[in-house]
Structure formats: C-alpha cells, structure tokens
C-alpha cells in the first residue's frame, strides 16, 4: 500500500532522508522508531505529500505522489490519510464535533463514507467518540481547550478515523500521556483501526511502545543518512 523507492530529500542543502526501499502493507500496525532529528516528521510529510522528494518515488495506495500536482496531493491526503499529532491537535475555536468533522470540509469521499455509516456527520462523530471511550453529552458541548490531554488525543483520533481513511499516521500521539493512558489509548486505537481496516503508521522515539506492534521499523536503520552525517 505504501511503496518507497530510492527516496531522497534535503532541507535546502542538508540531506535528511535517503531510503532505498520501504514497503508497508494494508491493515498493518506499523511502528516506526527513530530518535529526535532522525527525519521522522520529514518522512511523514513526504508520505502525506506536503513535501516533495528531490528524487525517488513514493506510491501511496498505488498512486505515485510525484505525478500529482500539489493541490491534487492535498485532496489525496484529505481523502485517504488521517493524522494524529503529538499535542494540540485541535483547532481551539471549533467545538469537539466540529473538530472531528473538519476533514469532511476538504474530502467529499470521507464525508460520504461517514454519512453512509451513521446517517449524518454528527452521529458518526459521536459514534467514534463513544468507541474511543468518550461518552457524555457534555463533552461534545465543551470547548476543546477544557478537555484533558488524553481526551484531546482521543478527539484527534476520532477525527483521523472519521470517514474511514485508508491510512492513519500518528506522530508521537502518546508522548503527552502518562503510561496508563498511553496503553489504553493505543489499545482503543488498534481496536478501531482493525474494525475499520485502517493501516496505522505509528511514529515514536519511545522504543518501549514497540511491544504493542507486530511490525516495526527503525528509521535509523533504513535511512542511509546517519545522524552523524547531519
């Protein structure tokens, strides 16, 4: 589902990424481990089509990203990829529900999927929140800044899952959580991704999380540009 061939990317003149070969299959929970500065975020941006590689090819869902224009890549991302970031995932001026349904403003495919599933966007958002363990009407009405970090991350997960994109990329989603919450978050995330048949790419510098995943990659190992070289 994701194929990377001879991928090279440099920030200005500094090479950051040089991956000769990487294949990720559908339905997998993949853990990409890498210390800070190893180019994790850059790799994710390349996968998302936000950054364009200097050379080499990236194929996502059999679609070579390099053949798409930047706005086509934006649409492609909207349609097929959900993101969960480390922290502050939510737009402060939108309600919980509005944050979750935000991708539908940019992707009609995901909007259709969500509506097909629950009848309307709000019901689907509520369904996902409940599945992720957030219940109670009051949460939906609250300002997102009033939620705890754990609740915020679950709202972010719900947003990433809404409309069942094929891929969810989670960039250090648990680093702001304590260990109890972290494990609970990861297990609910796994459950939901399995149910929806979503490929989860989980990126972290924390190798202790490796145990939850059946597949893992060490970015330091596959990236030909070594830390020392940077």
């Amino acid at each position: 589902m994701i194929k990377i061939n001879d991928l090279c990317f440099s920030w200005k003149t500094t090479p950051v990424i040089n991956i000769s070969n990487l294949h990720i299959q559908t339905g997998k929970h993949l853990f990409i481990e890498g210390p800070s500065g190893s180019g994790k975020s850059t790799l994710l941006s390349l996968l998302a089509g936000v950054l364009t590689p200097n050379s080499g090819g990236i194929e996502v869902l059999k679609q070579p990203l390099t053949s798409l224009s930047s706005s086509q890549k934006d649409s492609f991302r909207a349609d097929h990829i959900g993101f969960i970031f480390q922290q502050f995932n939510l737009i402060p001026y939108l309600s919980v529900i509005d944050n979750i349904t935000l991708p539908c403003s940019f992707s009609t495919i995901r909007k259709q999927k969500a509506i097909t599933r629950s009848g309307d966007l709000k019901s689907e958002a509520v369904r996902l929140l409940k599945a992720l363990g957030l219940t109670g009407e009051d949460i939906f009405q609250r300002n997102v800044n009033e939620l705890s970090v754990g609740q915020q991350q679950r709202v972010a997960a719900a947003r990433a899952m809404l409309g069942s994109p094929e891929i969810i990329i989670a960039d250090e989603p648990t680093s702001a959580l304590d260990s109890a919450h972290r494990d609970a978050f990861i297990s609910t995330l796994f459950n939901e991704c399995d149910k929806e048949n979503i490929t989860l790419i989980f990126v972290s510098h924390d190798s202790s999380l490796k145990k939850h995943f059946n597949h893992h990659i060490n970015l330091g190992a596959i990236n030909n540009i070594k830390q020392e070289q940077q």
């Binding site: 706005s71 934006d74 649409s75 909207a78 349609d79 993101f83 935000l102």
Partner: peptide
C-alpha cells in the same frame, strides 16, 4: 501557524 498546520493535515490546500 499550528492551526494552519492542522488544517493542512486534514487536507486544506495553501489556497484554503
């Protein structure tokens, strides 16, 4: 800038 990055992640174009 964070808000913009979030919007970009959910598929907003720079034009948006």
């Amino acid at each position: 800038r964070r808000e913009m990055a979030i919007l970009r992640s959910v598929g907003a174009r720079p034009g948006h």
